[in-house]
């Protein structure tokens, strides 16, 4: 193959290599700027990813909803979780649908296991990790558990939602971003309660 043809092909491949991450960025940037804010109660745990660094795993507390009508979704099947926010400002799954709803806030997710007795379907929401600085992620988990012993469990993940796509905006202990909370805790004089 001639060098010019190979260069042309390389240009096409390079465009694809750029387009894949760029597409991820554009879509998520739009969701972060235009999406509806949802606030889920969560419990952070600190694991490790060799490529992407340390993160706190987010275990969303309200991650199940009423089983949809018709055949029970297979685990891993795409479902749509319609989200409602209660009087306290906490977001919850109002209903699980097999097709995207025409209106309202919904997140594209996958089906987990179904409890046919209680007619409940567990849903795997695409909100499962919050990357943090490698030194601060373990401290964030520790801070959360220390705090949760003293008060109510009040860790929240703020998520922007648009057309079924969810983009994590921040992790909070009470109303304080977790990065600030960890910084306050590590100060010699001790931190403020959220």
């Amino acid at each position: 193959m001639k060098a010019s043809a190979r260069l042309g092909l390389l240009a096409a491949v390079a465009l694809a290599q750029i387009a894949v991450p760029a597409n991820m960025i554009l879509s998520l940037e739009r969701t972060l700027s235009e999406g509806t804010l949802c606030r889920f109660r969560t419990a952070p745990v600190d694991p490790y990813d060799a490529f992407r660094g340390r993160y706190v795993r987010l275990a969303i507390e309200e991650s199940s909803g009423p089983l949809p009508e018709g055949p029970i979704p297979e685990p891993g099947q795409t479902v749509y979780a319609r989200i409602e926010t209660d009087a306290e400002g906490i977001s919850k799954i109002a209903e699980v649908l097999l097709d995207p709803p025409d209106q309202g806030v919904y997140i594209r997710a996958t089906a987990g296991w179904a409890d046919t007795g209680q007619r409940i379907l567990h849903v795997n929401l695409p909100i499962d990790r919050y990357y943090m600085n490698e030194w601060k992620a373990p401290a964030a988990e520790q801070a959360y558990w220390d705090q949760s012993r003293m008060a109510q469990r009040n860790a929240f993940v703020h998520v922007r939602v648009r057309n079924g796509e969810a983009a994590v905006e921040g992790l909070y202990i009470g109303a304080v971003p977790i990065e600030e909370y960890v910084a306050q805790q590590s100060e010699p004089s001790g931190g403020n309660e959220p």
């Binding site: 991820m24 972060l32 992407r52 660094g53 993160y55 499962d128 919050y130 990357y131 994590v168």
Partner: peptide
């Protein structure tokens, strides 16, 4: 993925 907290 790290910057935009993309699911793992």
């Amino acid at each position: 993925g790290q910057t935009y907290q993309i699911p793992g």
